[in-house]
Write a protein that binds this DNA or RNA. Structure first.
Length: 604
RNA sequence: GGUCCCGUAGUUCAACGGAUAGAAUGGAAGUUUCCUAAACUUUAGAUAGCAGUUCGAUUCUGCUCGGGACUACCA
């Protein structure tokens, strides 16, 4: 049992014995005692004053005295301004450490029986992934792993936006400007090749718009109106729209080109996903789901939730809920994005019997999800409340926002390579890789570079706009992934030394009589809180909590090792106990960082 | 205009309504008797403003001021 829950039960007994009233466990707020006070856990007694009818200090004093007297595990207590600080005995902590050391896969919570789908990444197939996608992918992946660690059955899905005018633009530009280039002949990664075509299209388009605008103005049109009209009438845009029309009608030539170019893109994406260590359980393609949801529209009309206008378009009126009117079917009967999402959500909840669905999508779509949930609710689907929009903010650069127009977009592949290269340079500079094969070194550089990137991004609260400073992220000091990786490597190094000396620190061999020091108690307390931390983080959908937890633990180790001899300890059972402690630290670090998708090296 | 999000040390980030608001980085001063100095120790430095709710507010409510997003028969 967790120490804090143990104490909560004891405090509950005390309150009942002293005041003859049973209190809920929720009333007993226990938290780890802050560093500057003496004690392991602190009970906040303010909520109990109504029951005790005593002053805060007197209440705390009474409860403290009672539990200390009646429980051998509780060694002492003190009271500071209504906060009851409780000390557990060193031998109790020894037993807790032994439990943790002997636990299989510590931090993995028992199965909840719940199924949760996480949709993330969701790229367009007309350009490569950029920094914004990286935040999306890392959040989606880590929240999935977090939920899995919390015992849920998680399905990771990717909805690829593989159809639409954007991909037609790339296709058109490829036909016009690429001279039949393929990833093989051009040596470009597939998604980059297609992305370059998209850029080429926009160049052509811009030029056409400028020319047309000038022409319209010379014909006496006002500048703004001329530009607007030119944007609509640009020949290449019309051509792209024509192409989309052909695509929708299954034109074999267009479809063949579409499939060819998309396959290039997927090849490129898979490389990037592989570098990021990301995979999916299922990939949906918008070309296969974009007709979803039309049946729901009929249902909505029958229910009177939706209304059909005279021109044939269908709307949902949300003005009574403080939102606008939302279009669901155009007057030509075709559906829009929202319609698809409604249908897709229903399909998924029914097919997988989901308990929750999480969409990892940027905060520019907050409104979209607000509307989505509301319409589903109006359509009578209770599971509407089980949809969670994991909204994340933009990633800004020191120079300002990323603007594709201004070419300030940071490409995902470039960034990954930069991280790798910097990890390599820094590591070689420090020259600690003696005896490592080239292959091991390569792996290590990748681990460190990616670890730095992932940790830097995941540790920030998703909904906040964050600043990504490539230079600073590559600084391997401080609250960073490499710091934790390095800490782990050092623990492994100590454990290797111990093994060479033939010390056995396995859990079943540990002596129960070793009293833990205050610092050791502190660390065991943190370790004991790991499962709770996982549960809390999963509840809050917040991988950042896990990141901060891992950092705290790594820092504790560094301080601990600095002041406590381990390999030089003369008492064998004490040494074994200390080794078991740092071994437990390393295992918890691996589990925690594993949730974030960050690998920890044994040497670095 | 309306809706939503954000505002914390110079900077980047923390803080279930709880104690003296924590880290990191940068600044200043120090530390190799066990692993690997990518570490450790000490030091200065912040809740945008005004009310309210209560034992207690960075956190909840209202207003003001700043920054951002959304407000398409696009996806």
């Amino acid at each position: 049992m967790n120490p804090d829950i143990f104490i909560a039960h004891k405090a509950q007994e005390a309150v009942e014995a002293l005041y003859g009233q049973k209190v809920e466990l929720g009333m007993l707020q226990l938290s780890p005692t802050r560093k500057e006070f003496e004690g392991d856990y602190t009970l906040v007694v303010f909520p109990l004053l109504k029951i005790s009818h005593l002053a805060p200090d007197a209440t705390a004093q009474a409860i403290g005295a009672y539990i200390t007297e009646h429980n051998p595990e509780i060694q002492s207590f003190n009271v500071v301004k209504g906060f009851l600080n409780i000390c557990l005995s060193p031998l109790y902590w020894n037993a807790v450490l032994k439990d943790i050391a002997s636990a299989e896969n510590y931090g993995q919570l028992p199965s909840s029986g719940k199924t949760i789908m996480v949709e993330f990444s969701s790229p367009n197939t007309n350009k490569p992934l950029h920094l914004g996608h990286i935040r999306n992918n890392l959040l989606g992946w880590s929240v999935s792993e977090l939920l899995a660690a919390a015992g849920h059955n998680v399905i990771k899905v990717n909805l690829v936006n593989d159809r639409g005018i954007h991909i037609c633009k790339s296709m058109l530009a490829w036909l016009k400007t690429a001279n039949g280039a393929t990833p093989q002949t051009s040596g470009k990664k597939g998604d980059h090749l297609v992305g370059d075509c998209y850029v080429a299209f926009n160049d052509i388009y811009k030029k056409e718009v400028a020319e047309l605008t000038e022409k319209y103005v010379s014909e006496g049109m006002e500048a703004e109106a001329a530009k607007e009209l030119a944007e609509k009438n640009s020949p290449s845009l019309l051509e792209a729209q024509q192409m989309l029309f052909k695509w929708e009608n299954g034109d074999p030539e267009v479809r063949a080109l579409w499939e060819k170019m998309n396959s290039w893109v997927y090849e490129g994406f898979n490389k990037t996903y592989g570098d990021l260590g990301i995979s999916f359980d299922r990939i949906y393609y918008e070309s296969q789901t974009y007709l979803n949801g039309k049946a729901l529209v009929q249902k909505g009309l029958d229910m009177g939730v939706l209304e059909r206008m005279p021109d044939g378009s269908v709307w949902c009126d949300l003005t009574a809920d403080g939102l606008d009117r939302k279009l669901l079917l155009r007057k030509d009967g075709t559906s829009v994005y929202m319609t698809q999402d409604l249908g897709t959500a229903k399909q998924r909840f029914e097919e997988y019997k989901l308990d929750e669905e999480i969409y990892v999508v940027g905060n520019e779509q907050n409104y979209h999800f607000q509307v989505l949930k509301l319409i589903l609710k109006k359509l009578g689907f209770d599971w509407s409340d089980a949809i969670y929009h994991m909204s994340y903010g933009m990633v800004e650069l020191p120079e300002g926002k990323m603007k594709s127009r201004e070419g300030t977009v940071v490409d995902a592949d470039d960034l990954i390579n930069d991280m790798y290269r910097t990890a390599k340079e820094t590591s070689l500079e420090l020259g600690k890789l003696d005896g490592m094969s080239t292959e091991e070194q390569e792996q290590l550089f990748h681990m460190i570079g990616l670890g730095a990137l992932k940790y830097f991004i995941i540790k920030v609260d998703p909904k906040k706009t964050m600043l990504f400073d490539p230079k600073e992220s590559i600084d391997f000091n401080g609250n960073t992934g490499p710091f934790i990786q390095y800490t782990h490597a050092r623990i492994c190094s100590i454990l290797r030394k111990a093994a060479e000396q033939g010390v056995d620190y396995s859990a079943d061999k540990l002596s129960g009589n070793v009293e833990l020091s205050a610092k050791e108690t502190r660390i065991v307390k943190i370790l004991a809180g790991f499962p709770d931390k996982i549960a809390e983080a999963a509840q809050a959908h917040s991988p950042a909590l896990v990141a901060n937890y891992a950092y705290e633990l790594a820092k504790e180790f560094n301080q601990y090792y600095h002041e406590t001899p381990i390999l030089k300890e003369s008492d064998a059972s004490v040494m074994a106990c200390r080794l078991a402690l740092i071994d437990a630290i390393s295992r918890v670090l691996r589990k925690a960082m594993g949730i974030l998708g960050i690998q920890l090296p044994n040497k670095m």
